[in-house]
Simulated assay, not measured.
Amino acid sequence: MRIAVTNPTGNVGRHLTRTLARAGIRPLLLARNPENIPAELEPFVDVAQADSQDAAQVAAATRGVDALYWVDPSVMSADPLGDYARATDAVVRAVQENGIGRVVFQSSVGAEKRHGVGEIDGLAATEVALDALDIDITHLRCGYFFANLLLDLDSLRAGRLTTVLPVDAPMAWVAPRDIAEVAALTLLNREWSGRRVQAVHGPEDLSWAQVAAILSSELGRDVEVSRVTDDEMLGALRGAGMPEAMAHAVLGMSTGMRVGFVPEQERTVVTTTPTGLRGWVREELLPLL
């Protein structure tokens, strides 16, 4: 089985690539910048240059592929949903032109709403487009990445976290490595067919207040979380250099699920993965602070 992996240097892709190699698979890595693939992987992978928003490049790179792990890349953009639409066009063209019969798509909790969830609307559109094809498709509806905390290193050093969500509202948090494990198992398992939705919820639902308490304990200093207004968050996102449409799309991922949202998939043994926030903080966050 020839398996292709997009965004192979991303939070999930870098773990997925190594997991497939350990399983005896030589994955094909689709990379916009192949020079960024670690040299240590070269004996175990094949690499093709392809921008996931370029349909012609993706179609050319995936000839002979049986199964595809697809990620809609999120990049700093003045037209984020347009970028998602271009990525959707690229994966659809590749599947149709090359007869790729099996796709695992990295989606998100919230995509089931289809509209009104900021950037996640782009993932929802990809889900719909893939569902319309005559293929076996699994959508991984992932929780909030632990790795998103890495975007706030300066704030963490100052002992601050901010959110537009109620600080006591629990939600699914997940380690990217756990998503990679589920992705690898799904790609390698030949027993499923048709359309599937597989949630990846992490080990437990956590509120921002609980996250702050865990960080305080593990970092050895107080970390406080405060709820800010939507306008304050927009100002912070703009201050970080985000174009206007991108800032609103990022904010919408939180505000779109703020009131009354319940994930389509319940937490079960199937959706629950093992890596806890404390362990992730010790392994991934502390070395950077």
Rank of each mutant, 00 (worst) to 15 (best):
Thr17Ser: 10
Thr17Ile: 07
Thr17Asn: 02
Arg18Ala: 10
Arg18Glu: 11
Arg18Trp: 12
Arg18Pro: 02
Thr19Cys: 00
Leu20Tyr: 07
Leu20Gln: 04
Leu20Cys: 05
Ala21Tyr: 02
Ala21Gly: 00
Ala21Thr: 12
Arg22His: 13
Arg22Pro: 06
Arg22Ser: 13
Ala23Val: 10
Ile25Lys: 04
Ile25Glu: 06
Ile25Ala: 00
Arg26Gly: 05
Pro27Arg: 08
Pro27Trp: 14
Pro27Met: 10
Pro27Leu: 11
Leu28Pro: 02
Leu28His: 04
Leu29Asn: 00
Leu29Tyr: 05
Leu29Ala: 00
Leu29Phe: 04
Leu30Tyr: 03
Leu30Ser: 00
Ala31Glu: 04
Ala31Trp: 06
Arg32Ala: 08
Arg32Ser: 09
Arg32Gln: 12
Asn33Gly: 05
Asn33Lys: 08
Pro34Leu: 03
Glu35His: 08
Ile37Met: 03
Ile37Thr: 02
Ile37Gly: 03
Ile37Ser: 01
Ala39Glu: 14
Ala39Tyr: 09
Ala39Trp: 10
Glu42Thr: 14
Pro43Gln: 10
Pro43Phe: 10
Pro43Ser: 10
Phe44Ala: 13
Phe44Arg: 13
Phe44Glu: 15
Phe44Tyr: 15
Phe44Ser: 13
Phe44Gln: 14
Phe44Ile: 15
Asp46His: 01
Asp46Met: 01
Asp46Arg: 03
Val47Lys: 00
Ala48Asn: 03
Ala48Arg: 15
Ala48Gly: 02
Gln49Gly: 04
Gln49Pro: 11
Ala50Met: 09
Ala50Thr: 11
Asp51Cys: 00
Ser52Pro: 05
Gln53Val: 09
Gln53Asp: 09
Gln53Trp: 05
Gln53Tyr: 07
Ala55Ser: 13
Ala55Lys: 06
Ala56Pro: 05
Ala56Asp: 15
Ala56Cys: 06
Val58Met: 07
Ala59Gln: 11
Ala59Thr: 15
Ala60Phe: 08
Ala60Asn: 09
Ala61Phe: 04
Thr62Val: 03
Thr62Met: 03
Thr62Pro: 07
Arg63Trp: 09
Val65Pro: 10
Val65Trp: 07
Asp66Lys: 06
Asp66Gln: 11
Ala67Lys: 15
Ala67Ile: 11
Ala67Cys: 12
Ala67Phe: 14
Leu68Gln: 08
Leu68Pro: 07
Tyr69Gly: 01
Tyr69Asp: 00
Tyr69Trp: 13
Tyr69Cys: 01
Tyr69Gln: 01
Trp70Tyr: 15
Trp70Glu: 05
Trp70Cys: 04
Val71Lys: 03
Asp72Gly: 14
Asp72Pro: 14
Val75Met: 12
Met76Gln: 15
Met76Pro: 12
Met76Arg: 15
Ala78Asp: 14
Ala78Trp: 06
Asp79Leu: 08
Pro80Val: 07
